[in-house]
Design a binder for these strands. Structure first.
Lengths: 209, 209
DNA sequence: CCCCTTTTGGAGAAGGCCCTCCAATACATT
DNA sequence: AATGTATTGGAGGGCCTTCTCCAAAAGGGG
C-alpha cells in the first residue's frame, strides 16, 4: 500500500512491476568512484556495469547513452555540492563572515566527499558537455548562473565596483579553496586538519586586499 | 657540409639518411592542439597522425606508444613553462617582488601560449602518468622537486615557519594565478588586459596575510 | 493464480584505437 | 651512379567500447 502510494506519486499508475536491482543512484555512485580513480575517461558504460555487476543492458535502461550518464554524474555532483554552498554563502549577514563560511564549506565538503570532490576539479567540458542534451545543458547553465549571481551579490555587499573586484571575490570564495583541495587530492595526501583554517585565512586576505 | 656537422653533433655518424618529414616537435605541436581542444583523451595516436597528415607508422617511429607520447607532450609543456617561471622567481632579491613577478609570468605565459596553458590545467595523472616509463617519471619528479624547492626557498625568505605558511605561499605564487587562467580558459574568454595586475594584487594579498 | 509491467541478462554488430610489420622511398654521402 | 640508412606509407590483427535487440525473469495487484 505504501509502495503503491509511492508509485502513484512518481506517476506510475496501473500495475506494479519488477523492482529494480540496479537503480540510477547506484550506477551513479559507481560512476563517481570510477571518475575519481581514472578521470572522466574511466567512466565507460561497460566499466560502470562491471563495477556493480550489472549487465550492460541495465545501464542503457537507465541512461540514453554515455553522454547522458556523464551529464548525470557531473550534474548530480555539482548540485549536491552547491546545495550546502549556497547555504554557507547566506549564513551570515556580514559579507566577510559569509565568505569565510563559503571557503570552509568547500574544504569541509571535499573532506567528507573526496571522490565527488575529485570530480569537481574537472570541468563540465571534460564530461563531454558539448554532446549533452538540451535539458542537461540547461541544468548546467542554471547552476552556473546561480553561482554567478550569488557571488555577484556578495561582491556588491563587499563594495565591489569594477569587474576586477568581482573576479577577485570569485577567486577568494571559489578558486582559492578549490585550489587547496586540488593540491592535496592530486598529491594523494588527505586534507590536513588545519585546511579549513588556512582556506578561511586566504579568503579573508583576498577579500581584504 | 653544415648538415653533416649537425648530424655529427647529434651523434649520427655513418651515412646520411632520408630527412624526416614529420619530426618529434611537429607531432608534439599537434598533440598540444588536440589536448587543448578535447583534453588528454583527445590525444590518440591516430588523431595526431591525422592532424599532420602522417601515416600512423611515422608516429610510432618517434614514440614507443601512446603513454610515451602523452609523457613527452606533458613534460615538454611543463618544462617550457618552468624555464621562465624559475627566472621570474629569482628575478628580484625582495621576496615580495619575486612573488609578484612569478604571478605575472604565469598569466603572461598563458596568454602567449593558450594551448599549452590549457595543458597545465590538467595534471600528470590525466596524461597517464601511472603508465609512464621510469625515465619519464623521473623527469616529472625532477621538475616537481625544483618547483617545491624554489617555492620553499621563497617561503623561507618571507619568514615562513610552519607548513601552513609554506602552503599559503604556494597558493599565492602558483595556484591563484593558475586559477585566474583557468577561469578564463575554461570559460572560453580571452585573458583580459588587467589579468596580470589582478594576479599580482591577489598574490601580494596572500603573501601579506 | 494470472496479468501486466519493468527489469534483467546477455549475445552480437559496428566502429575506433593501439600497435605490428614490411616493402617502398628519398636523400647525403662516396 | 651506387650505397646505406632513417623514414614513409599503409594494410591488418586484436582488443575494447558503444549501442541494439529480445527473450526470460520477477514481483505486486487483482
Amino acid at each position: 500500500m505504501e509502495k503503491a502510494l509511492q508509485y502513484i506519486l512518481e506517476g506510475t499508475l496501473q500495475n506494479m512491476a519488477r523492482p529494480p536491482l540496479f537503480d540510477m543512484s547506484l550506477l551513479l555512485d559507481a560512476a563517481v568512484r570510477l571518475a575519481a580513480e581514472a578521470g572522466p575517461a574511466g567512466v565507460t558504460m561497460s566499466a560502470v556495469a562491471a563495477a556493480v555487476g550489472a549487465p550492460s543492458g541495465s545501464v542503457y535502461h537507465r541512461f540514453a547513452g554515455r553522454p547522458a550518464l556523464l551529464a548525470e554524474v557531473w550534474l548530480r555532483t555539482v548540485e549536491r555540492f552547491q546545495e550546502g554552498y549556497f547555504a554557507a554563502l547566506r549564513s551570515a549577514p556580514d559579507p566577510h563572515a559569509a565568505g569565510a563560511a563559503a571557503a570552509r564549506h568547500i574544504v569541509a565538503w571535499s573532506r567528507a566527499h573526496p571522490e565527488e570532490a575529485a570530480l569537481l576539479l574537472y570541468g563540465a567540458r571534460d564530461f563531454g558537455r558539448d554532446g549533452w542534451s538540451a535539458e542537461h545543458a540547461e541544468r548546467a547553465d542554471r547552476g552556473h548562473r546561480r553561482v554567478r549571481d550569488a557571488v555577484g551579490a556578495l561582491a556588491r555587499d563587499l563594495g565591489a565596483h569594477t569587474p576586477q573586484d568581482t573576479e577577485r571575490v570569485s577567486l577568494a570564495v571559489i578558486d582559492v579553496p578549490l585550489s587547496l583541495v586540488r593540491r592535496h587530492l592530486r598529491g594523494g595526501t588527505e586534507l590536513p586538519e588545519h585546511a579549513e583554517d588556512l582556506a578561511e585565512r586566504c579568503t579573508a586576505a583576498l577579500l581584504a586586499g
